[in-house]
Amino acid sequence: MQTITDIKNLTVQSLPPILVLTGEDVGQFEWLKKEISKNIGYDPSDLNYSYFDMKEASYVDVELDLVSLPFFADEKIVILDHLLDLTTAKKRYLTDEELKQFESYLERPSESTRLVIFAEGKLDSKRRLVKLLKRDAQIIEAATPKEQDLKRYFSSQAQEMGLQFVGDALDQLLLKSGYDFGDLQKNLAFLKAYKEDGQIRLEDIEEAVPKTLQDNIFDLTQMILQRRIDQARALVKDLRLQGEDEIKLIAILLSQFRMFSQVKIFSEEGQSESQIVTSLSELSGRKINPYQVKFALRDSRRISLAFLKQAMMILIETDYAIKNGSYDKDYLFDLALLKVANAV
């Protein structure tokens, strides 16, 4: 977790002339952004700080602020948020001419301005703007950490908070949080408030950490595969009471079975786990969470491609029937669960 170490001692005094925070791990990115803002003492009422949301700001105003002298100090800090023009995202906020003007500024930045850039996503290394920043700026990347690094970091965080995980409780917290940095931060804080004695056991994780829809769909999938139909129907009933729609449930189930199929095919072709992550990311056009692949590989081993193909066809046909209004959607969804279970 080098990124956290990089900002731990960051202050106004140690802030480099240009600092860029980027990365595809959304939870970690948002946490790092808050920490950086806190560490440099950002205060919207302080005239030595200027904040621009690039989704709304005019570049004319940004450039004027970049080159103007500070009023009450020797230096001022300019923050550019959501500068997606640096990333591979299709969204752009600056025109080609404005990008050239910004490049010109970066080649000769003001000595009295400290520039902080928040650009969520993956930096586009082909852009001249990014090449300039890689040459002259300090870049902090919120990259998806390895499982062991994540476990080590949150184990340390727990100790600082006076929490002690008993047995496999930490592993269960990681699993229930989807190995997501942001969710782990929130759930750790929740457990701190939940258990006054600081002893966190497996049952505490199950009772205190709320299940996500993805958790419930995972449970539903396991029930179907194990033909525990009564339990599956009871879970679906609970999800309906929570306001979840059958169309949405089908979409997530389809996504899960599709992931099983893809990793199984790539695995049978001889691809390693990391190669499968790369292949799926290229196929989908977005960064695939490595932990999704890890668990999909584990859970798909005992499932045949023939079953997965049949299960997806059943769900697709059910989705069509529900949207077409052929029968009651509750009946159609329950029937689909039975068909998929019987196909195992």
Score class of each variant (00 low, 15 high):
296 A>I: 11
70 P>V: 08
241 L>A: 13
66 L>Q: 00
200 I>V: 14
70 P>K: 07
78 V>S: 06
243 G>C: 04
326 S>G: 00
323 K>W: 06
289 N>Q: 13
67 V>R: 00
319 D>F: 07
261 S>P: 01
161 M>F: 13
341 A>D: 02
14 S>Q: 07
17 P>M: 04
334 D>S: 07
210 P>S: 06
3 T>D: 13
146 K>V: 05
77 I>A: 03
189 A>D: 10
260 F>S: 08
259 M>G: 05
213 L>P: 02
98 E>F: 05
228 R>H: 13
75 E>H: 15
230 D>C: 04
52 F>T: 03
188 L>K: 06
309 K>I: 07
81 D>Q: 11
253 L>E: 03
180 D>F: 02
208 A>Q: 11
146 K>N: 11
34 K>P: 05
14 S>R: 09
206 E>P: 02
85 D>S: 11
262 Q>V: 05
62 V>F: 06
243 G>W: 00
124 D>G: 03
127 R>L: 15
238 D>Q: 15
248 K>Y: 00
12 V>D: 14
250 I>R: 01
211 K>Y: 09
175 L>Q: 12
97 E>G: 09
271 Q>C: 14
50 S>Y: 04
343 A>W: 11
91 K>D: 15
324 N>I: 00
206 E>F: 05
1 M>E: 01
194 Y>T: 13
209 V>N: 13
132 L>C: 03
322 I>P: 02
329 K>C: 00
181 F>I: 14
108 R>K: 12
182 G>R: 04
36 I>A: 09
335 L>K: 15
121 G>W: 06
145 P>M: 04
282 E>I: 06
317 E>S: 14
54 M>W: 05
254 L>M: 14
71 F>N: 08
336 A>P: 01
143 A>W: 01
10 L>V: 01
259 M>P: 03
232 A>H: 05
31 W>K: 09
290 P>Q: 10
238 D>Y: 12
33 K>D: 03
201 R>G: 10
4 I>V: 14
341 A>N: 03
201 R>H: 13
337 L>N: 01
223 M>C: 08
330 D>W: 03
22 T>Y: 10
327 Y>R: 14
328 D>L: 08
271 Q>A: 13
283 L>Q: 15
323 K>A: 02
39 N>D: 03
232 A>D: 03
155 S>G: 15
128 R>V: 07
110 S>K: 00
128 R>D: 01
197 D>Y: 10
161 M>V: 04
291 Y>K: 07
275 Q>W: 00
163 L>D: 02
64 L>S: 12
